[in-house]
Design a binder for these strands. Structure first.
Lengths: 293, 293
DNA sequence: GGTTTCGATTCCATGCTGGCATGCAATTTA
DNA sequence: TAAATTGCATGCCAGCATGGAATCGAAACC
């Protein structure tokens, strides 16, 4: 029993006229006659009583009509659904993001959700390195990460970010060259923004220190950026934070961007290249417009 | 989207292995590969990620799997149901019966209902002529009627029945020859069992009177056999009833079968010859065993 | 009685479908 | 390291299912 035959059957049952049904189905009357004959042979029932004034349903035909219309309707709904899935109008999209994209990521997701309400999009907070692992195993489809990403992933740069010195207001501002910085930071009590290991902010900070050739004493360690800035404001020490944190810098703290190569990194989106979900490019485009806007 | 493709898809999705699925479907692996490719083209989605260790479902494939199994299950159920309808294990059967088959008809229907519980069988009381009309228009499928039936119907004789004189006990019993009967009945008050016109009991009675060449005076008319017999017992007059009524004859009444040709008729089943319902022969067979038993 | 209507039948071309052999890639085994 | 194995894809070919044009047959209508 194939859906094609059931569709033909329904058409005949509704018009009670083979010729008219054939026209509606964009086929010919002999073809329809044969199809119904096949269906009758397959079901073992005579479905129509053929009269001179068209065809009328037998009891068996009536029984089939009710169920087959339901079946065909479901099949059509399924086809439609698959079409929506193909277009990316439906589905699941897991997005990862880290501290450094706290401004872009939620905005992008919210905008995307508005455009595609049937998509189940979720935002999960995790560091870049965790995101890379999650993307690789498929549990995250697009990540907002620090670049570069592993080679099996596609990336798009959103912006370049850099480290900045968080210094209590009123302190003498060091020149942003290598030697001044080394001198400044050497032996200075430092508040460290601690996240995971891997290509994160902590790693970036370490890289800078290696570049400068100094190793400050760490006074406090915390994983919350606001806590760090509050401690700096309270005079507990200096710190190194993303320059993009300027948006949330409290009273009593100034940020001094560091223009050294080792203090600069890119932030962007990453996704598995072999992923074929139509949602990924759709979401990337949404991000692009949101970053520009 | 055809059910064949969905069945193939489900088989692959369940085994996660094209070769194994092909074996299960009694086909070959290349055929399956092509079917899935067609399905993927039709739905516009990649349904499997083909790895070295078999195939695994994509997100789109997962979405399709749930709905398609449901769809296929429904289609199978429908096919099964049609099979049952074809076998006569399911359906509607309307049976008509009259006074003269009050013994056989309900028993046959009850027995049939027990054997085929899914069949919605209904018994309706109506005279033979009404049954013929109902059978012709399809509202009754099998009737218990007086024979003969119209030529477009098939028939089977259940038994021969005849008219009998219902006489109060103690009355002189007339010889059952034509002249004695005429003499007896002429001018005798008669209680008439009145049903509809047509080839019914009343017609049979009239036929007998024509044959005898007499026309008794009708004292009472009623359509209930028991009332007729009660009136006879009360001495209100004589009557002509089916000889088979002997089973319910009350005290004070005796039945005298009339052996004349014009007083005899057959009782049996009738059905539309062009009816193709499998329930009809099934029911007829059931009747046959019930009549013999 | 001719005409129309409506379904069934016949015949034929087309194209879908499946099967076989084979290819290709990755992994396991000797 | 070569051979065997596993697993899916591809090319090619045969067979059959499917559909279309023409025709038929029966019934109804004018």
């Amino acid at each position: 029993m194939e859906l094609r035959l059931l569709r033909s059957f329904i058409a005949v049952a509704e018009t009670r006229n083979f010729g008219a049904a054939a026209r509606a189905l964009m086929t010919t009357q002999p073809a329809l006659t044969k199809q119904i004959q096949v269906l009758e042979r397959q079901t073992g029932n005579t479905l129509f009583t053929r009269g001179r004034h068209g065809a009328s349903l037998t009891a068996a035909g009536e029984a089939l009509l009710a169920d087959s219309t339901d079946l065909v309707r479901r099949a059509d709904a399924l086809a439609l659904r698959m079409e929506r899935v193909a277009m990316g109008a439906e589905g699941v999209l897991n997005v990862g993001f880290g501290m450094s994209t706290i401004d872009v990521a939620p905005r992008s997701v919210a905008a995307f959700r508005e455009c595609h309400p049937a998509v189940d999009i979720r935002l999960e907070d995790m560091s870049s390195s965790v995101q890379f692992a999650a993307i690789r195993e498929g549990s995250v489809h697009v990540g907002f990460v620090r670049l570069p990403a592993p080679p099996e992933m596609g990336t798009r740069v959103i912006r370049r970010d850099q480290l900045a010195l968080a210094v209590p207001s009123g302190e003498a501002i060091p020149e942003p060259d290598r030697s001044s910085l080394r001198e400044c930071l050497q032996d200075r009590p430092l508040i460290r923004l601690l996240k995971d290991r891997g290509p994160g902010l902590a790693a970036q900070t370490n890289e800078l220190f290696t570049d400068l050739g100094c190793s400050p004493t760490v006074m406090y360690e915390t994983s919350d950026l606001l806590t760090v800035l509050a401690l700096v404001a309270a005079g507990a020490g200096w710190s190194l934070v993303p320059a993009s944190a300027s948006a949330i810098v409290p009273e009593g703290v100034q940020l001094i961007p560091i223009d050294l190569e080792s203090a600069v990194w890119s932030v962007g989106t990453a996704w598995l290249l072999k992923s074929q979900s139509p949602l990924v490019p759709l979401f990337l485009q949404s991000v692009e417009t949101n970053v520009k806007g």
